[in-house]
Simulated assay, not measured.
Amino acid sequence: MDPIVKAALKKWPNVPHCYGWLALDARGDWYMRDERIQAAGPFPQVKGSRIVHEKLREFIERNYEADEQGCWFFQNGPQRVYLQLEATPWVWRLAATPAGPQLRSHTGRPAQFRSAWLDELGRLYLDSDIGPGLVHSLDMETAADAVEQGLWTPQDIHAAELPARFGFQRQPEAQ
């Protein structure tokens, strides 16, 4: 977490949390969802405005965490902005190496492979030391090579079972 964010938390510890205004899609893109977009429909059917500003994306990525209930958020100064997730908290980008694919999250964070899971639509999920994620569609060839080489053996799972199995929430709501 950025030092400036930690300082803001100390200065204003009781700022209300924010829900529904930020989302992460299955390709690792961040979306702003203002009141008009939220009223137009649920995420991901109505996504909102894709965040393309590089510095803003980097700020979100550095301050992206989960709470004890498995709700993922962006700590925006003193305010927690809870995310809606299309698929999983992480979207994996893969780099082929002689030892097997290296995992890097949509935020650039490296991870260590634990297990592979395949859902009813053929989407591949990987569990890691930092949590579960969906393999980015552009990296499925690298993932298929790992399966063919016997490095990964995907187990079957229904997409709806992922949050309970791996302890995260796709649509956090105010308590």
Rank of each mutant, 00 (worst) to 15 (best):
L9E: 02
A95N: 14
A99N: 14
D156K: 14
A66G: 10
E65M: 11
T88G: 03
D2M: 11
P3R: 05
F168G: 03
V81W: 12
M140S: 14
I60V: 08
R36G: 08
Q169D: 15
N76H: 13
A95E: 12
E120W: 04
C71P: 03
H106F: 06
H106N: 05
F59W: 06
L56D: 03
H53M: 12
R109E: 10
L151W: 03
G20L: 02
Q38M: 07
D34G: 09
P110L: 02
A174M: 13
I130H: 09
Q171S: 08
F43Q: 01
L138Q: 10
A111R: 02
D29Q: 11
S105T: 02
F73G: 01
E35H: 09
L121N: 15
Q112R: 04
G108K: 03
A116Y: 01
K55I: 06
P132M: 15
A159Q: 12
N14L: 07
P13F: 14
G122E: 13
Y64I: 05
P16Q: 13
L85E: 05
L126P: 03
M1S: 10
R114Y: 04
G108F: 06
Y82D: 08
E86R: 15
E148H: 15
L118A: 09
G41L: 12
R33A: 00
D145Q: 10
A99F: 10
N14Y: 13
D25T: 07
W21P: 01
P16W: 05
F113V: 08
R80G: 15
K47W: 01
P42W: 11
L121K: 09
R93W: 13
L126Q: 01
P89H: 04
E65C: 12
T142I: 10
G150H: 00
G48K: 04
E65A: 06
T153Y: 07
R62S: 11
P3W: 05
Q69C: 15
D29N: 13
K6W: 08
V5C: 03
R80M: 12
S105N: 03
G28P: 05
D29S: 07
H17T: 12
E161M: 11
V135L: 12
A8W: 11
A144Q: 04
D129A: 05
E161W: 14
S128P: 13
M140C: 09
G28R: 07
W152T: 01
V91S: 00
A159I: 10
L22T: 11
G100L: 07
R104V: 02
I37H: 01
W117G: 01
Q169Y: 12
S128H: 08
A87V: 08
K10I: 09
C71T: 05
H17Y: 08
Q38V: 03
L118E: 06
M32T: 13
Y19A: 09
F73E: 01
R62C: 10
V15N: 03
Y64F: 06
D127Y: 08
S115R: 08
E58F: 02
D25V: 02
A87Y: 00
G133W: 00
R170I: 14
A7G: 12
C71I: 03
D67V: 11
G133S: 09
A116P: 00
Q112L: 09
G77F: 04
Y64K: 02
